[in-house]
Design a protein around this nucleic acid. Structure first.
Length: 425
RNA sequence: GGAGAGAUGGCCGAGCAGGUCGAAGGCGGUCGCCUGCUAAGCGACUAUACGGGCCAAAACCCGUAUCGUGGGUUCGAAUCCCACUCUCUCCGCCA
């Protein structure tokens, strides 16, 4: 959510940002509603003022044993008007909020202009795609042949877009979770968090999943609970409605969680394999920073995430999203894309974003720059570090051998009880 | 799930037979005075949001709102009524 005062003062700047994203939004309408709202607030506050002062007079009169009937009758009228105006103001306020929530964050100046993902700009590449003396397989073929992934039985038990990890497959997934967390916690200075996987509607609104993306969520029937689509939701909301000491910033959290997505808009896409599941594992990195340090912290966040890929020796590239492909709340986003030999292309494995004060304003997360100073909104950032299922898929494909086995990346072997290779059954 | 108790400012804690209560008192904090140093003591100040004064900001001033949340009664609600949420204690259930 943008600052209403900022919009009032910089309407042209906001209009330009909306245009850069290619979004259709009538800012003048919002400004009109705001005008009307402010007028009514002004009027009703004056009425409340007379009510308050006259009520005091009534108290004085009554105490003196005098008659106050006339004033009481007057105030009855005033109260009626107040009630009516308050109702109108409430409606206007809701309308204003609704409009305000539709405005996306302002893209950072360094974000390239563009329509869609084809306009994203590659920043750098690391590692060379492996050369195979045979036709590389897709990870689901490899996993099923090794009997470590079972999509068919998951179909029976849960439905499409679910999966059983089995044996060394399950162990590989678990090894990756532990490896990533250990890396971020012990080497990159993040605090480990194990969050709830179900959150209430206020939290979903705080990070911007609601109201706009309701159809992407799983909701628990009859309860105010949603399955989280990412640990970003509980971890960012962890500090909702709080003011923290500026000296504590930046705060850095690393959280493992299951992630649950309805994938309503993705029918027919990536129907096979681990790429797009209703449930997947992810280690998420979340930061709360001072405004002036968020740009630098985004770069560090990307480095923390890509180091995992480097240690796993998985080739990847990094792209910066163009204005048209940028997520609603983000001001700037880097995607990490890992090389998938089966599909012969790079696939997103992490998305690292700076949300500036956009989420913080919505979720009301503030800090005090100095002990007595006025509280300001923090900047929030987050990024996958990494999506675990997709990492497993990337390992299966990049480390596959001609005989159908899969080598275990060296850094994971200690997490796999020394297993160096996943062999055919 | 059943029974009971509770939710007030940064914290503790009064007020709860409706009127001058943004809210006593204390702690903590800031500034000043005093003092060889320290401790103690004295005095003042010490919430947030929104609107307006002021479509340059800050400061300042005025107003409004805020005593868990939402509604109701009333000229007037921290105080009365209703619903909900959360916390605590006991019982039951459960990994």
């Amino acid at each position: 959510m943008l600052d209403l005062k900022f919009i009032r003062k910089n309407p042209d700047l906001v209009r330009a940002a909306i245009a850069k994203r290619g979004v259709d939004f009538n800012l003048d309408h919002l400004l009109d509603v705001d005008d009307e709202w402010r007028q009514k607030v002004f009027t009703v506050e004056q009425l409340k003022n007379t009510r308050n002062t006259v009520s005091e007079e009534i108290a004085r009169l009554k105490k003196a044993g005098e008659n106050a009937d006339e004033k009481i009758a007057q105030m009855r009228e005033v109260s009626r008007s107040i009630k009516k105006l308050d109702e109108e103001i409430r409606e206007l306020g809701e309308k204003l909020q609704g409009l305000l929530l539709q405005i996306p964050n302002i893209p950072h100046a360094s974000v390239p202009e563009g329509q869609d993902d084809s306009d994203n700009v590659e920043v750098r590449r690391w590692g060379d795609p492996p050369q195979f003396a045979f036709e590389p397989k897709n990870h689901w073929e490899i996993g099923e042949a090794l009997d470590i992934l079972d999509f068919n039985r998951a179909g029976k038990v849960s439905g499409a877009r679910f999966n059983f990890y089995k044996g060394l497959g399950a162990r590989l997934e678990r090894a990756l979770i532990n490896f990533m967390l250990d890396q971020h916690v012990t080497r990159h200075g993040y605090t480990e968090i194990f969050p709830p996987f179900l959150v209430n509607e206020d939290s979903m609104r705080g990070t911007g999943q609601l109201p706009k993306f309701a159809e992407d969520m799983f909701k628990v029937e009859g309860r105010d609970l949603y399955l989280i689509p990412t640990a970003e939701v509980p971890v960012t909301n962890y500090l909702r409605d709080e003011i923290m000491d500026g000296e504590l910033l930046p705060l850095k959290f690393a959280a493992y969680s299951g992630c649950f997505r309805a994938e309503a808009g993705a029918a027919g896409r990536d129907t096979r394999g681990l790429i797009r599941q209703h449930q997947f594992n992810k280690v998420e990195l979340v930061k709360f920073t001072r405004p002036e340090e968020s740009e630098e912290e985004l770069e560090k966040l990307v480095h923390d995430a890509e180091e995992i890929l480097q240690l796993l020796k998985l080739p990847y590239r990094i792209v910066v999203l163009c204005s048209g492909d940028l997520g609603f709340s983000a001001s700037k986003t880097y995607d990490l894309e890992v090389w998938m030999p089966g599909a012969r292309k790079y696939r997103e494995i992490s998305s690292c974003s700076n949300f500036t004060d956009f989420q913080a304003r919505r979720a009301n997360i503030r800090y005090r720059p100095k002990p007595k100073a006025k509280a300001e909104f923090v900047h929030t950032l987050n990024g996958s570090g990494l999506a675990v299922g997709r990492t497993t898929a990337a390992i299966l494909e990049n480390y596959q051998q001609e005989d159908g086995s899969v080598a275990v990346p060296e850094v994971l072997q200690p997490y796999m009880g020394g297993v160096k290779r996943i062999e055919m059954p």
